[in-house]
Design a protein around this nucleic acid. Structure first.
Lengths: 143, 143
DNA sequence: CGGAATCCGCACAGATACTG
DNA sequence: CAGTATCTGTGCGGATTCCG
């Protein structure tokens, strides 16, 4: 097993790549991309971009997320240094989450993706209709 | 079931939301986000951003992708109007993929995400180490 | 309130084989 | 070369329960 110069924690497989390359299955950057190119991560970070939010606030805001996935996503984001968790020892305890500077930096590019989805949805919908129509015709022609 | 003004194909659930909102579990934009905030979609589009590529070219370039996932991802991207498929009737047949204008637009924001991952990997790795160390201490203190 | 722990199903992903 | 078809398993994610 050859050693590379580019290693990182959270990187669990057998080989190490000499430089950052998201296209290499075993590169740490690829594993990182797998985590951030994830719908829940994107949504959580986007909400946190609006300001500090508490656990159940996030859960209420993000439709369809389970407590488990929210918990897992938050822990992963915190471990990667993208989110900070703040515990206020009230009764019952109050826990809030916010983006770090690093998370904020990433968030700028994620926001572009979310905005694009909301802005271009109609164009995508048209493309889908056209595609489905073509498929339908082909299937019919094939009989 | 109330009708909204904002509907779209590929939208299969019971309710319809009146305006684009990625935080609503049943909004078409949310379903779109689920598809593009996906590691394989991001990697495929990123490769295609470099120019027209054939099926096996993509497969070779993207480490760890199975032919099934590549095929599914490409079909989904094509249906959403982000990618065009071109068949050249040679023997054997040659099929190449490229981004559409719409896909190119999305790609600009995706590239930001990929670049960020490669650029900030070291900061993330540091955060992970610190987090794991904190966890280790807490676990030890708890005995 | 903010989780952790447990159980469990099924959809998704991998592997393999086959086809035009 | 560029896929489809089929099978199989497994781990993701939902539901539920319990705790500080």
């Amino acid at each position: 097993m050859q050693e590379g110069t580019f290693t990182a924690p959270g990187y669990r497989r057998g080989t190490v790549c000499p430089e950052p390359d998201v296209f290499a299955a075993d590169c740490p950057t690829r594993l990182l991309l797998d985590r951030i190119a994830d719908k829940w991560s994107v949504l959580v970070l986007t909400v946190l971009g609006e300001g500090e939010v508490r656990f159940n606030g996030l859960k209420r805001r993000i439709g369809g997320i389970s407590q488990k996935m929210l918990s897992q996503t938050l822990r992963s984001l915190e471990r990667d240094g993208l989110v900070v968790r703040t515990v206020t020892p009230t009764v019952p305890v109050s826990v809030s989450y916010a983006t770090t500077a690093l998370g904020c930096e990433l968030l700028r590019t994620l926001r572009g993706m979310v905005d694009w989805a909301e802005r271009r949805m109609d164009a995508v919908a048209q493309a889908q209709t056209a595609y489905d129509e073509r498929e339908r015709r082909l299937a019919q022609a094939a009989g």
